[in-house]
């Protein structure tokens, strides 16, 4: 079941468009914002609000990389693995984080504190390597910075 708040936010987006289905991506993002990810149940709930089928919602949901159809941890670390960051050494960064948290790309730490994912170019190539944690952007990363950084996310 969607919360009243979620429904309200979705309805607000719906109003902007010629028909409700247009708000599909917005709705997915809203629900994900509240719950961290999109469960099968959320797919059905969103479908109901937008008056389309679960299949239509899921078809869209599974297309976009920033819609999570599997549960994620409380914090999501996205490490840029595109070419400039590769040149600037994202791999050692990844290795370090991976070892530290005991998870590889796609994994969630057992305490559900972190999920680690790769992401493509974050448009900050002159300050590579780059990563995002939740909504926060970090650049010119070094291994030294990592420990300090992760501490902020509980």
């Amino acid at each position: 079941m969607l919360t009243e708040e979620e429904k309200k936010e979705i309805q607000k987006e719906v109003k902007q468009y010629p028909y409700p289905a247009v708000a599909c991506i917005d709705a997915l993002k809203i629900v994900q914002q509240h719950r961290g990810w999109i469960s099968d149940e959320s797919v059905k709930d969103i479908a109901q609000v937008l008056r389309i089928s679960s299949e239509e919602v899921d078809s869209v949901a599974t297309f976009y990389s920033r819609i999570y159809r599997k549960p994620v941890g409380r914090n999501v670390i996205l490490i840029c693995d595109s070419v400039s960051c590769m040149i600037m050494g994202y791999e050692s960064l990844y290795q370090y984080i991976s070892k530290k948290l005991g998870i590889s790309f796609g994994g969630t730490s057992s305490d559900r504190r972190f999920t680690l994912l790769p992401i493509s170019c974050l448009g900050d190539c002159d300050n590579a390597p780059v990563m995002i944690i939740n909504n926060d952007h970090f650049n010119r990363l070094t291994i030294e910075k990592i420990d300090e950084l992760l501490e902020h996310y509980k």
Partner: peptide
């Protein structure tokens, strides 16, 4: 949308 790797001008 600027997602092409190596591109950071629009930002």
């Amino acid at each position: 949308d600027e997602m092409e790797p190596g591109t950071f001008k629009d930002r």
